[in-house]
Design a protein around this nucleic acid. Sequence first.
DNA 1: TCCTCTCGGTCAAGGTGGTTGACTGAGACG
DNA 2: CGTCTCAGTCAACCACCTTGACCGAGAGGA
Lengths: 158, 158
Amino acid sequence: MTEHQPLPALGLAELLLLATRVVVERVHDRLAAEGFAVRPAHGYTFQLLATSGGASGAELAEHLGVTKQAAAQLLDGLHQAGYITRRPDPRDHRARLAVLTERGWACIHAATAAWREAETAAAALLGADRLQALREDLHRLAADGGALQPPLRLRPIW
Amino acid sequence: MTEHQPLPALGLAELLLLATRVVVERVHDRLAAEGFAVRPAHGYTFQLLATSGGASGAELAEHLGVTKQAAAQLLDGLHQAGYITRRPDPRDHRARLAVLTERGWACIHAATAAWREAETAAAALLGADRLQALREDLHRLAADGGALQPPLRLRPIW
DNA sequence: TCCTCTCGGTCAAGGTGGTTGACTGAGACG
DNA sequence: CGTCTCAGTCAACCACCTTGACCGAGAGGA
Protein backbone atom coordinates (compact mmCIF):
# COMPACT_ATOMS: atom_id res chain seq x y z
CA MET A 1 0.00 0.00 0.00
CA THR A 2 1.25 3.39 -0.94
CA GLU A 3 1.16 6.50 1.19
CA HIS A 4 -2.20 7.90 1.98
CA GLN A 5 -2.02 11.64 2.16
CA PRO A 6 -4.77 14.16 1.88
CA LEU A 7 -3.86 16.43 -1.00
CA PRO A 8 -3.45 20.17 -0.55
CA ALA A 9 -6.99 21.37 -0.07
CA LEU A 10 -7.50 24.47 -2.15
CA GLY A 11 -4.68 25.55 -4.42
CA LEU A 12 -4.61 28.78 -6.35
CA ALA A 13 -5.97 27.02 -9.40
CA GLU A 14 -8.96 25.60 -7.54
CA LEU A 15 -9.71 28.96 -6.01
CA LEU A 16 -9.51 30.60 -9.41
CA LEU A 17 -11.76 27.96 -10.91
CA LEU A 18 -14.37 28.23 -8.19
CA ALA A 19 -14.38 32.01 -7.98
CA THR A 20 -14.64 32.21 -11.75
CA ARG A 21 -17.55 29.83 -11.78
CA VAL A 22 -19.37 31.84 -9.15
CA VAL A 23 -18.99 35.16 -10.94
CA VAL A 24 -19.72 33.79 -14.38
CA GLU A 25 -22.68 31.80 -13.18
CA ARG A 26 -24.15 34.89 -11.61
CA VAL A 27 -24.06 36.75 -14.90
CA HIS A 28 -25.28 33.76 -16.83
CA ASP A 29 -28.24 33.17 -14.50
CA ARG A 30 -29.14 36.83 -14.56
CA LEU A 31 -29.21 36.83 -18.35
CA ALA A 32 -31.11 33.57 -18.49
CA ALA A 33 -33.70 35.02 -16.13
CA GLU A 34 -34.19 37.88 -18.55
CA GLY A 35 -34.73 35.49 -21.42
CA PHE A 36 -31.28 35.70 -22.96
CA ALA A 37 -29.99 32.16 -23.24
CA VAL A 38 -26.35 32.61 -24.13
CA ARG A 39 -23.16 30.60 -23.99
CA PRO A 40 -19.65 31.92 -23.50
CA ALA A 41 -18.77 31.84 -27.17
CA HIS A 42 -21.76 34.06 -27.79
CA GLY A 43 -20.27 36.72 -25.58
CA TYR A 44 -17.02 36.77 -27.49
CA THR A 45 -18.95 36.88 -30.74
CA PHE A 46 -21.07 39.78 -29.53
CA GLN A 47 -17.95 41.58 -28.49
CA LEU A 48 -16.52 41.28 -31.99
CA LEU A 49 -19.74 42.27 -33.70
CA ALA A 50 -20.30 45.24 -31.40
CA THR A 51 -16.84 46.68 -31.83
CA SER A 52 -16.45 45.97 -35.54
CA GLY A 53 -19.96 46.66 -36.67
CA GLY A 54 -20.22 43.29 -38.36
CA ALA A 55 -18.10 40.31 -39.29
CA SER A 56 -18.00 37.42 -41.72
CA GLY A 57 -17.93 33.80 -40.65
CA ALA A 58 -14.27 33.53 -41.50
CA GLU A 59 -13.46 36.61 -39.44
CA LEU A 60 -15.35 35.23 -36.48
CA ALA A 61 -13.54 31.92 -36.82
CA GLU A 62 -10.25 33.76 -36.74
CA HIS A 63 -11.37 35.85 -33.76
CA LEU A 64 -12.50 32.84 -31.76
CA GLY A 65 -9.68 30.59 -32.81
CA VAL A 66 -11.98 27.89 -34.12
CA THR A 67 -12.72 26.46 -37.56
CA LYS A 68 -14.93 28.15 -40.09
CA GLN A 69 -17.44 25.34 -39.65
CA ALA A 70 -17.70 25.89 -35.92
CA ALA A 71 -18.09 29.61 -36.44
CA ALA A 72 -20.80 29.06 -39.05
CA GLN A 73 -22.64 26.79 -36.63
CA LEU A 74 -22.40 29.42 -33.92
CA LEU A 75 -23.74 32.12 -36.21
CA ASP A 76 -26.59 29.85 -37.27
CA GLY A 77 -27.59 29.58 -33.63
CA LEU A 78 -27.38 33.31 -33.05
CA HIS A 79 -29.34 33.96 -36.23
CA GLN A 80 -32.03 31.50 -35.24
CA ALA A 81 -32.26 33.13 -31.81
CA GLY A 82 -32.72 36.49 -33.50
CA TYR A 83 -29.54 38.10 -32.23
CA ILE A 84 -28.03 38.72 -35.65
CA THR A 85 -28.95 39.10 -39.27
CA ARG A 86 -26.83 38.24 -42.25
CA ARG A 87 -26.36 40.54 -45.14
CA PRO A 88 -24.02 40.85 -48.08
CA ASP A 89 -20.62 42.22 -47.15
CA PRO A 90 -19.86 45.41 -49.11
CA ARG A 91 -16.14 44.82 -48.63
CA ASP A 92 -16.14 41.28 -49.98
CA HIS A 93 -19.12 40.13 -51.96
CA ARG A 94 -18.34 36.49 -51.30
CA ALA A 95 -18.88 36.90 -47.57
CA ARG A 96 -22.11 37.13 -45.60
CA LEU A 97 -21.79 39.77 -42.94
CA ALA A 98 -23.24 39.04 -39.52
CA VAL A 99 -24.72 42.14 -37.93
CA LEU A 100 -26.34 42.60 -34.55
CA THR A 101 -30.11 43.06 -34.47
CA GLU A 102 -32.00 45.14 -31.93
CA ARG A 103 -32.39 42.02 -29.84
CA GLY A 104 -28.68 41.41 -30.12
CA TRP A 105 -27.98 44.85 -28.77
CA ALA A 106 -30.55 44.33 -26.04
CA CYS A 107 -28.69 41.19 -25.01
CA ILE A 108 -25.42 43.10 -24.93
CA HIS A 109 -26.95 45.82 -22.79
CA ALA A 110 -28.41 43.24 -20.42
CA ALA A 111 -25.06 41.48 -20.22
CA THR A 112 -23.28 44.74 -19.52
CA ALA A 113 -25.70 45.47 -16.71
CA ALA A 114 -25.35 41.97 -15.28
CA TRP A 115 -21.60 42.29 -15.45
CA ARG A 116 -21.62 45.61 -13.68
CA GLU A 117 -23.94 44.18 -11.08
CA ALA A 118 -21.58 41.28 -10.48
CA GLU A 119 -18.74 43.71 -9.98
CA THR A 120 -20.83 45.73 -7.60
CA ALA A 121 -21.56 42.61 -5.60
CA ALA A 122 -17.86 41.77 -5.55
CA ALA A 123 -17.04 45.30 -4.43
CA ALA A 124 -19.58 45.03 -1.65
CA LEU A 125 -18.03 41.76 -0.56
CA LEU A 126 -14.38 42.69 -0.78
CA GLY A 127 -14.34 46.44 -0.60
CA ALA A 128 -13.51 48.70 -3.51
CA ASP A 129 -9.79 48.92 -2.93
CA ARG A 130 -9.44 45.22 -2.41
CA LEU A 131 -11.38 44.54 -5.62
CA GLN A 132 -9.11 46.89 -7.48
CA ALA A 133 -6.08 45.03 -6.17
CA LEU A 134 -7.70 41.76 -7.22
CA ARG A 135 -8.24 43.04 -10.72
CA GLU A 136 -4.65 44.20 -10.96
CA ASP A 137 -3.31 40.87 -9.74
CA LEU A 138 -5.46 38.89 -12.11
CA HIS A 139 -4.39 41.16 -14.91
CA ARG A 140 -0.75 40.55 -14.12
CA LEU A 141 -1.25 36.79 -13.91
CA ALA A 142 -3.01 36.81 -17.26
CA ALA A 143 -0.43 39.08 -18.86
CA ASP A 144 2.38 36.94 -17.52
CA GLY A 145 0.94 33.96 -19.34
CA GLY A 146 0.58 35.91 -22.56
CA ALA A 147 -3.19 35.65 -22.45
CA LEU A 148 -3.70 39.32 -23.15
CA GLN A 149 -2.20 39.39 -26.61
CA PRO A 150 -4.57 40.99 -29.14
CA PRO A 151 -6.28 37.87 -30.49
CA LEU A 152 -7.68 37.18 -27.02
CA ARG A 153 -8.99 33.84 -28.15
CA LEU A 154 -11.86 31.91 -26.76
CA ARG A 155 -10.50 28.47 -26.26
CA PRO A 156 -11.33 25.65 -23.92
CA ILE A 157 -9.72 26.25 -20.58
CA TRP A 158 -7.84 22.96 -20.56
CA MET B 1 5.96 47.57 -18.48
CA THR B 2 3.33 48.35 -15.92
CA GLU B 3 1.67 51.05 -17.93
CA HIS B 4 -1.92 51.78 -17.11
CA GLN B 5 -3.88 50.88 -20.17
CA PRO B 6 -7.47 52.03 -20.07
CA LEU B 7 -8.48 50.62 -23.41
CA PRO B 8 -9.32 46.96 -22.95
CA ALA B 9 -12.45 47.02 -20.84
CA LEU B 10 -11.70 43.73 -19.17
CA GLY B 11 -14.36 42.91 -16.66
CA LEU B 12 -13.79 40.90 -13.53
CA ALA B 13 -15.16 37.81 -15.23
CA GLU B 14 -12.79 38.10 -18.18
CA LEU B 15 -9.85 38.64 -15.91
CA LEU B 16 -10.80 35.63 -13.84
CA LEU B 17 -11.24 33.52 -16.96
CA LEU B 18 -7.92 34.54 -18.43
CA ALA B 19 -5.92 34.26 -15.22
CA THR B 20 -7.43 30.86 -14.55
CA ARG B 21 -6.55 29.68 -18.01
CA VAL B 22 -2.97 30.83 -17.61
CA VAL B 23 -2.45 29.09 -14.29
CA VAL B 24 -4.25 25.91 -15.25
CA GLU B 25 -2.53 25.73 -18.60
CA ARG B 26 0.83 26.02 -16.94
CA VAL B 27 0.14 23.01 -14.77
CA HIS B 28 -1.39 21.10 -17.64
CA ASP B 29 1.55 21.75 -19.94
CA ARG B 30 4.02 20.84 -17.24
CA LEU B 31 2.32 17.51 -16.66
CA ALA B 32 2.00 16.84 -20.36
CA ALA B 33 5.71 17.48 -20.76
CA GLU B 34 6.37 14.82 -18.14
CA GLY B 35 4.22 12.33 -19.99
CA PHE B 36 1.10 12.64 -17.91
CA ALA B 37 -1.74 13.42 -20.26
CA VAL B 38 -4.57 14.33 -17.96
CA ARG B 39 -7.84 16.19 -18.13
CA PRO B 40 -9.49 18.19 -15.37
CA ALA B 41 -11.92 15.45 -14.43
CA HIS B 42 -8.91 13.21 -13.87
CA GLY B 43 -7.63 15.54 -11.21
CA TYR B 44 -10.86 15.44 -9.28
CA THR B 45 -10.91 11.68 -9.61
CA PHE B 46 -7.35 11.39 -8.34
CA GLN B 47 -8.25 13.59 -5.43
CA LEU B 48 -11.08 11.28 -4.45
CA LEU B 49 -9.03 8.13 -4.89
CA ALA B 50 -6.08 9.52 -2.96
CA THR B 51 -8.11 10.65 0.01
CA SER B 52 -10.46 7.69 0.16
CA GLY B 53 -8.06 4.92 -0.75
CA GLY B 54 -10.35 3.74 -3.52
CA ALA B 55 -13.82 4.29 -4.89
CA SER B 56 -16.48 2.55 -6.94
CA GLY B 57 -17.86 3.91 -10.17
CA ALA B 58 -21.04 5.00 -8.47
CA GLU B 59 -19.12 6.81 -5.76
CA LEU B 60 -17.05 8.63 -8.35
CA ALA B 61 -20.18 9.57 -10.23
CA GLU B 62 -21.61 11.04 -7.06
CA HIS B 63 -18.35 12.84 -6.31
CA LEU B 64 -18.09 14.38 -9.76
CA GLY B 65 -21.77 15.07 -10.13
CA VAL B 66 -22.04 13.14 -13.38
CA THR B 67 -23.84 9.97 -14.44
CA LYS B 68 -22.57 6.49 -13.66
CA GLN B 69 -21.94 5.99 -17.34
CA ALA B 70 -19.72 9.04 -17.60
CA ALA B 71 -17.83 7.97 -14.50
CA ALA B 72 -17.36 4.46 -15.88
CA GLN B 73 -16.02 5.90 -19.10
CA LEU B 74 -13.63 8.09 -17.18
CA LEU B 75 -12.37 5.16 -15.14
CA ASP B 76 -11.93 3.12 -18.31
CA GLY B 77 -9.65 5.82 -19.63
CA LEU B 78 -7.64 6.02 -16.41
CA HIS B 79 -7.39 2.24 -16.32
CA GLN B 80 -6.20 2.07 -19.90
CA ALA B 81 -3.60 4.75 -19.15
CA GLY B 82 -2.37 2.69 -16.22
CA TYR B 83 -3.28 5.15 -13.50
CA ILE B 84 -5.69 2.85 -11.68
CA THR B 85 -6.52 -0.81 -11.22
CA ARG B 86 -9.91 -2.25 -10.47
CA ARG B 87 -10.44 -4.83 -7.77
CA PRO B 88 -13.40 -6.29 -5.93
CA ASP B 89 -14.75 -4.02 -3.23
CA PRO B 90 -14.63 -5.70 0.19
CA ARG B 91 -17.39 -3.45 1.39
CA ASP B 92 -19.80 -4.22 -1.41
CA HIS B 93 -19.13 -7.23 -3.56
CA ARG B 94 -21.20 -5.86 -6.38
CA ALA B 95 -18.86 -2.92 -6.87
CA ARG B 96 -15.48 -2.78 -8.57
CA LEU B 97 -13.14 -0.62 -6.57
CA ALA B 98 -10.84 1.75 -8.45
CA VAL B 99 -7.45 2.05 -6.77
CA LEU B 100 -4.46 4.17 -7.70
CA THR B 101 -1.44 2.40 -9.16
CA GLU B 102 2.16 3.45 -8.69
CA ARG B 103 1.85 5.42 -11.90
CA GLY B 104 -1.27 7.01 -10.56
CA TRP B 105 0.60 8.18 -7.49
CA ALA B 106 3.48 9.36 -9.65
CA CYS B 107 1.03 11.51 -11.59
CA ILE B 108 -0.34 12.94 -8.37
CA HIS B 109 3.12 13.77 -7.13
CA ALA B 110 4.00 15.41 -10.44
CA ALA B 111 0.75 17.38 -10.33
CA THR B 112 1.41 18.50 -6.79
CA ALA B 113 4.87 19.69 -7.78
CA ALA B 114 3.53 21.49 -10.84
CA TRP B 115 0.88 23.11 -8.73
CA ARG B 116 3.38 24.27 -6.17
CA GLU B 117 5.59 25.57 -8.94
CA ALA B 118 2.71 27.57 -10.38
CA GLU B 119 2.10 29.09 -6.97
CA THR B 120 5.76 29.91 -6.65
CA ALA B 121 5.67 31.64 -10.01
CA ALA B 122 2.62 33.58 -8.94
CA ALA B 123 4.32 34.55 -5.71
CA ALA B 124 7.35 35.74 -7.63
CA LEU B 125 5.13 37.81 -9.85
CA LEU B 126 2.85 39.32 -7.25
CA GLY B 127 4.77 39.05 -4.03
CA ALA B 128 3.89 36.70 -1.22
CA ASP B 129 1.60 39.04 0.67
CA ARG B 130 -0.24 40.07 -2.41
CA LEU B 131 -0.70 36.43 -3.40
CA GLN B 132 -2.09 35.68 0.02
CA ALA B 133 -4.56 38.53 -0.33
CA LEU B 134 -5.51 37.18 -3.76
CA ARG B 135 -6.18 33.75 -2.33
CA GLU B 136 -8.32 35.22 0.42
CA ASP B 137 -10.35 37.31 -1.97
CA LEU B 138 -10.93 34.40 -4.33
CA HIS B 139 -11.93 32.29 -1.39
CA ARG B 140 -14.47 34.85 -0.30
CA LEU B 141 -15.86 35.19 -3.80
CA ALA B 142 -16.22 31.43 -4.08
CA ALA B 143 -17.70 31.08 -0.61
CA ASP B 144 -20.14 33.89 -1.31
CA GLY B 145 -21.47 31.96 -4.26
CA GLY B 146 -21.80 28.77 -2.25
CA ALA B 147 -19.15 27.01 -4.30
CA LEU B 148 -17.30 25.72 -1.28
CA GLN B 149 -20.04 23.45 0.03
CA PRO B 150 -18.77 19.91 0.71
CA PRO B 151 -19.70 18.22 -2.57
CA LEU B 152 -17.35 20.57 -4.43
CA ARG B 153 -18.54 19.29 -7.77
CA LEU B 154 -16.70 19.37 -11.03
CA ARG B 155 -19.13 20.87 -13.42
CA PRO B 156 -18.85 22.80 -16.63
CA ILE B 157 -18.39 26.47 -15.90
CA TRP B 158 -21.52 27.41 -17.80
C1' DT C 1 -31.79 -19.02 6.40
C1' DC C 2 -34.35 -17.13 2.87
C1' DC C 3 -36.51 -13.71 0.25
C1' DT C 4 -37.01 -9.40 -1.58
C1' DC C 5 -35.61 -5.49 -3.70
C1' DT C 6 -31.84 -2.14 -3.83
C1' DC C 7 -28.35 -0.52 -6.48
C1' DG C 8 -23.71 -1.10 -9.11
C1' DG C 9 -22.63 -1.74 -13.66
C1' DT C 10 -23.58 -1.76 -18.50
C1' DC C 11 -25.84 -1.55 -23.21
C1' DA C 12 -27.99 1.43 -26.58
C1' DA C 13 -29.14 5.63 -28.53
C1' DG C 14 -28.94 10.53 -28.85
C1' DG C 15 -27.22 15.41 -28.41
C1' DT C 16 -23.86 19.18 -28.33
C1' DG C 17 -19.99 21.26 -29.95
C1' DG C 18 -16.05 20.79 -31.70
C1' DT C 19 -12.66 18.58 -35.46
C1' DT C 20 -10.42 17.27 -40.39
C1' DG C 21 -10.91 16.87 -45.26
C1' DA C 22 -12.69 17.91 -49.65
C1' DC C 23 -15.01 20.84 -52.64
C1' DT C 24 -17.43 24.75 -55.18
C1' DG C 25 -17.85 28.86 -57.34
C1' DA C 26 -18.14 33.89 -56.68
C1' DG C 27 -15.34 37.36 -57.03
C1' DA C 28 -10.71 39.67 -55.68
C1' DC C 29 -7.01 41.22 -57.97
C1' DG C 30 -2.93 41.49 -60.91
C1' DC D 1 -9.93 39.50 -68.52
C1' DG D 2 -7.99 35.38 -66.89
C1' DT D 3 -6.38 33.19 -62.84
C1' DC D 4 -6.51 31.62 -58.47
C1' DT D 5 -7.71 32.83 -53.70
C1' DC D 6 -10.80 32.04 -50.21
C1' DA D 7 -15.74 32.27 -47.83
C1' DG D 8 -18.89 29.08 -47.21
C1' DT D 9 -20.60 24.39 -46.91
C1' DC D 10 -21.24 19.22 -47.07
C1' DA D 11 -19.87 14.96 -44.96
C1' DA D 12 -17.71 12.17 -41.75
C1' DC D 13 -15.92 11.68 -37.39
C1' DC D 14 -14.71 12.33 -32.47
C1' DA D 15 -14.91 13.47 -27.35
C1' DC D 16 -17.78 13.66 -23.79
C1' DC D 17 -21.76 13.89 -21.87
C1' DT D 18 -26.83 12.73 -21.44
C1' DT D 19 -31.46 9.79 -20.82
C1' DG D 20 -33.62 5.40 -20.65
C1' DA D 21 -33.81 0.58 -19.99
C1' DC D 22 -32.11 -3.34 -18.02
C1' DC D 23 -29.71 -7.27 -15.52
C1' DG D 24 -28.51 -9.76 -11.64
C1' DA D 25 -25.35 -10.05 -7.61
C1' DG D 26 -25.75 -9.50 -3.19
C1' DA D 27 -27.16 -6.36 0.78
C1' DG D 28 -29.99 -6.58 4.46
C1' DG D 29 -34.33 -7.28 6.96
C1' DA D 30 -37.74 -10.84 8.75
